[in-house]
Simulated assay, not measured.
Amino acid sequence: MARDTRDRILLAAKELAEENSSVQGVTVSLESVAQRAGLTKPGLMYYFPSKEALMVGLVEHAAQHWDQLLRDCTGSTPDALTPCERYRAYVTVATTAEVSRADYWIFSDALYKPTLTAAWRPHLGPWFATDGAPPAATALLTTARFCADGAWMSEATGVFPAADLGAVRSHALALVDQAAAATKDAP
């Protein structure tokens, strides 16, 4: 029951972020989330005692979701994969997953709050590790990730989305293939 209530709260916060059309950006309060989740503010505060705790929970929930999408894509954990396999999965997921304005807000809000940035690291950090890859391969993998990052952010915000996301994915995956070749050719 506690997990269901916690998830209901996080879903309510994400829904509010998705609905917010203010030019000032997204405003999510403990009161508005509690109301949306069908709880009292003290009821919500049992799970998230502060706005910061709610935001960290929201980021962790999003990061866990991305981690699960990547695990579903690969059928594996990141530590069992090569860097190229991990980046191939990320490019694929980032260019095919359903994303929204709220997803972008949750990700970008971390820029301004170190505690939110830290919440992403344990879940996505292992997917972006390039340990053992030669510098040329690391540069290609990073470029492929930046391409995928831009694609999902553009899709989530609706600002200049790709006319052909499949072609973007193909080009980013070609960079991963080049990184794999560079890894094989490395001494």
Score class of each variant (00 low, 15 high):
174 A>V: 10
165 L>C: 03
101 R>V: 06
8 R>H: 07
57 G>N: 02
114 P>C: 04
123 H>K: 06
176 V>Q: 13
10 L>V: 08
130 T>Q: 09
58 L>F: 10
60 E>W: 07
37 A>F: 00
26 V>N: 06
148 A>M: 08
163 A>W: 07
173 L>F: 06
186 A>S: 10
57 G>K: 00
181 A>Y: 12
4 D>A: 11
183 T>I: 10
131 D>A: 13
96 T>M: 10
73 C>E: 11
97 A>N: 04
168 V>W: 05
34 A>L: 04
171 H>W: 11
67 D>E: 12
119 A>M: 02
61 H>Q: 12
7 D>K: 13
109 D>A: 09
17 A>W: 00
183 T>W: 13
11 L>G: 09
169 R>K: 05
157 T>L: 04
95 T>H: 06
8 R>S: 10
100 S>Q: 04
120 W>D: 10
174 A>C: 08
78 P>M: 06
173 L>K: 05
126 P>D: 03
63 A>C: 02
68 Q>I: 05
110 A>D: 11
58 L>V: 05
59 V>H: 01
48 F>H: 07
9 I>R: 01
120 W>Q: 08
48 F>V: 05
130 T>Y: 03
26 V>Y: 08
85 E>Y: 08
15 E>R: 09
90 Y>Q: 14
166 G>Y: 05
83 P>T: 03
144 A>Q: 05
64 Q>M: 13
134 P>K: 06
49 P>D: 01
144 A>K: 01
187 P>D: 11
181 A>G: 11
42 P>H: 11
112 Y>D: 12
76 S>H: 08
122 P>K: 00
149 D>F: 09
9 I>D: 01
145 R>H: 10
60 E>K: 00
93 V>K: 08
106 I>C: 01
137 A>M: 07
12 A>N: 04
33 V>T: 13
152 W>N: 05
135 P>I: 02
29 S>Q: 06
